[in-house]
Amino acid sequence: MSNTRRQALLGSLFALGATAIWSGNFIVARGLSEIVPPVSIAFWRWVVAVIVFLPFALKALVAERHMLLKNIRYLSLTALLGVTVFNTLIYIAGHTTTALNLSLIAITFPIFIVILSRILYGELITTKKILGIVLVTCGVVLLITKGDLSVLTNITFTVGDFWMLSASSIFAVYSILIKHKPQELSIWSFQLSTFSLGLLFLFPFFVWESATTPPVTYSITTILAILYIGIFASLTAFVLWNKAIITIGPAKAGLIYYTLPLFSGFLAYLFLKESIGIIHLISALMIVSGILTANHQAKKKEPCYSQKAP
């Protein structure tokens, strides 16, 4: 296997790992939304992520402090979009819209990435890429609607849908920004600095929410759920996602994000005892086929050099 193909496989696995973890995050976050206010969920999530990550990344943070200060504007913008705003908007959206709407709007995120990659990087939107996007979109819609496409005609839109659409576009911009991460910064110092800055930006909103909403009683179940989204959905998934962006680029990683409902469905089968039927298998086939089609690149023929006789 060539080095290029090895990198592509590794980057795809990073993106797949992040997506699998985020699928569990949506299930946990949906349950927390009835107990903990949206900004508080986001705040405690990132508190956990920073605390857990600190022992591993503090040395790199201190060693690279001058480079971090040099790139403080870039880091602040990245932290504001990816940490402070993105997840908080999802939690806010979950209070005023349905799970169906959230799922359908979430799949616009990879499309935003493809468009932005075209505008900013000049990446070609090939016929294969368009066909792949159509395939995965149809597969996701089929999966979410459970084969009853008539439910789409009964959808009503609320302010929560606007927040979710904003979250999708913001995460696309965040993913594009990751491509510009200064090479001098390690993934450790970059992640800890953006997590910390994002948490700092979120703090005033947390104080405001705490002062204007009833106090929350944190049960053992709630604490364990926050630990999950803090350690895995925040720390582990973001590190994997950012490594995927750096390795294979935002457009290809974005297409792999379409596998999220497949993982969500599998988790629902394991923990919620929801059945898996033929619709799920057809949807999975369409989604995987679409991703492979969009990311397929023809092998470049090696030049053939004829050896002349001396």
Rank of each mutant, 00 (worst) to 15 (best):
Y91W: 09
I287K: 01
Y228K: 01
I105L: 11
L131V: 12
K70P: 00
T194F: 03
L235D: 06
L124F: 12
T137P: 00
R65D: 10
I113G: 03
L270D: 03
T137I: 09
M286C: 12
I229K: 01
F86P: 01
I220A: 13
Y305S: 07
S117P: 00
G198A: 07
L32G: 01
T4Q: 14
L227Q: 05
L16S: 05
G82H: 07
A29L: 06
C138Q: 03
A79S: 06
L149H: 08
S150L: 12
V159Q: 11
G24Q: 01
L58K: 04
T221V: 11
F162Q: 04
T158C: 05
W163H: 10
I278L: 13
P250K: 06
F238L: 11
A309G: 00
F162H: 00
A106Y: 06
L75T: 07
P110G: 07
W163M: 09
L152W: 11
I35P: 00
I231V: 15
D161N: 10
A211F: 09
L68Q: 04
S189C: 06
I256W: 04
T222F: 05
K146M: 07
I248R: 01
I21H: 04
E64I: 07
A93F: 11
K181P: 02
K128A: 15
T98L: 08
L9G: 06
T4A: 14
I279W: 02
V207H: 03
K252S: 15
T145I: 06
T97I: 04
F86L: 03
R73L: 15
V47A: 10
T19A: 00
G230S: 10
I291H: 01
